[in-house]
Design a protein around this nucleic acid. Structure first.
Length: 468
RNA sequence: GUCCCCAUCGUCUAGUGGUUAGGACACCGCCCUUUCACGGCGGUAACCGGGGUUCGAGUCCCCGUGGGGACGCCA
């Protein structure tokens, strides 16, 4: 049987890190076996579902490169089918109308809590034959009261839940709209899912869903419940922990490959390997190897991975990702050195794409001020004379090439009888405005002769004024 | 509260009865170095507790403890 998996988010927000990871696992499982990956939008809660959320989720999937073969399928387009199944369950006696009011249910739960019991529907409408006037009924599934449900979870192993722990869940609201546990069952069956990979917050729903499938005479798919991702306070990852939207990571300068790589290694491993190409992920990933324990999100490691990818990625590909940040930071690279050359010089020292762009600004634009700490540390009384000497030496260069620039700087040092560390650092601040840059010869070469000389004169004037 | 899941360095993990308990991030040294990085070398650091089973337990079982999840006319 061909493998078929799905990702089934409810469009009530953006695609978050946890969802992205289960989507990745599900996608990987399908890709590994040459199967089908389907995207289903679980929008039966019309109150909370929005088109904006659907768009955000699609954007996130697209950015991560998680492509789907079928869908997006919207559950709201399938209400007729759900109604058919609900009717079938009623007809065969596996579901019934319940006329309990919210007040009655609240009271019942309160009572149960007071008795230190698990709040659950007590089945009081199970044998009711007459409607209750003025109450639009819901439909409940008649869950078995005895026996147990066994899940052979691919990640968690064998899970056994007694039917007496379960109650008769609502499968249709009083307005006739189907609920989650019914729609999931119908869709997973109709769409031929072979494997359901989802968050382990759904473990408790699984026995209910299996019971409905059994009532429908169907064979349940295989389940793989992936653990949650926790924030650094040990609590489930949420907005409190900073960036949780996948797109926020794009905005913050992360490469999708780095995020994917981080996500796959969070809760899964292949020996000591840390960095995986997509091909390797598909080859090595086994859903059975996913760790059953929840793991804590660690942004330091993500940053490290991002740096590795920035460093190693083919330059053309890196440039494509950089374009968005160029636009976002409004850096115009038309008036200056070849951007690829700048990036090649800079990429070893950047942890994010945002850094990479912002730290490359001085190659294209003149700066108004020197970085305060750098100027304070490097600009001394002798600076104007030193800068003047460097300027004069550089000015004579017929050939503005790194080797020649390097030589000119060293010649200046000899003339002034100064060590390189007395000349280099202030020179860097004068030309870049900051204390960090690639090596000076490359930096000056890329900044260009005209700009370099101008900036040196500017630094001389600045320091003369300062020490006058 | 009830049910379910989980438990190796601070974090992500390797480990499938016999290991000096390995790797990665972070951290700390040293080296490289005109800056910041990259890189290289080295270091600190872990089997939640208690009972079993066994010649032998991080590994198997039980009980605690701790953490997470679920308990909706949400998904």
């Amino acid at each position: 049987m061909t493998v078929k998996t799905r990702f089934a988010p409810s469009p009530t927000g953006y695609l978050h890190i946890g969802g992205a990871r289960t989507a990745l696992y599900s996608w990987l499982h399908a890709r590994k076996f040459g199967g089908t990956f389907l995207l289903r939008i679980e929008d039966t809660d019309r109150e909370r579902s929005t088109q904006a959320s659907v768009d955000a989720i699609l954007e996130g999937m697209n950015w991560l490169g998680l492509d789907y073969d079928e869908g997006p399928i919207y559950q709201t387009d399938r209400f007729e089918r759900y109604k058919e199944v609900i009717q079938q369950l009623i007809d065969q006696g596996d579901a019934y109308y319940c006329y309990c009011t919210h007040e009655e249910l609240d009271e019942m739960r309160e009572q149960q809590r007071a008795n230190k019991e698990k709040p659950r529907y007590d089945g009081r409408c199970r044998e009711r034959t007459e409607p209750r006037e003025g109450v639009e009924p819901v439909v409940r599934f008649r869950n078995p009261t005895e026996g147990e449900v066994v899940i052979d979870d691919l990640i968690k192993g064998k899970i056994v839940i007694a039917n007496k722990e379960l109650d008769d869940l609502i499968i249709a609201r009083s307005d006739g709209a189907p609920t989650y546990n019914l729609t999931v069952v119908v869709d997973d069956l109709d769409m031929g899912m072979t494997h359901v990979v989802r968050g382990d917050d759904h473990i408790n729903n699984t026995p209910r869903q299996i019971n409905i499938m059994t009532a429908l005479g169907a064979e349940p798919p295989k389940y793989a419940h992936a653990p949650m991702i926790l924030g650094d306070d040990g609590k489930r990852l949420s907005k409190r922990h900073g960036a949780v939207s996948v797109m926020q990571y794009r905005d913050d300068g992360f490469l999708p490959q780095a995020l994917i790589n981080y996500l796959i290694r969070l809760g899964w491993s292949h020996g000591d390997q840390e960095i995986f190409s997509l091909e390797e992920m598909i080859e090595f990933f086994k859903v059975e190897d996913v760790n059953g324990a929840a793991s804590t999100f660690n942004s330091e490691k993500l940053l490290w991975l991002n740096q590795q990818y920035i460093k190693e990625m083919p330059i053309e590909e890196l440039m494509e990702h950089l374009q968005w940040h160029l636009d976002n930071q409004k850096l115009d690279i038309s008036n200056g050195p070849d951007f690829a050359a700048v990036i090649n010089a800079q990429r070893d020292r950047a942890k994010t794409l945002v850094d990479l762009v912002s730290s490359s600004r001085y190659f294209y634009e003149d700066f108004e001020e020197y970085a305060e700490a750098a100027a304070k540390k490097q600009f001394k009384t002798a600076t104007p004379d030193i800068m003047q000497a460097v300027h004069d030496e550089l000015e004579t260069l017929p050939d503005w090439q790194p080797e020649a620039i390097d030589k000119a700087i060293k010649v200046t040092c000899e003339k002034l009888e100064l060590k390189l560390n007395k000349v280099g650092p202030p020179l860097r601040v004068a030309v870049t405005g900051t204390a960090m840059s690639p090596s000076l010869d490359i930096t000056l070469y890329l900044v260009g002769k005209e700009r370099t000389l101008e900036r040196l004169l500017k630094a001389i004037a600045f320091n003369r004024a300062k020490y006058a």
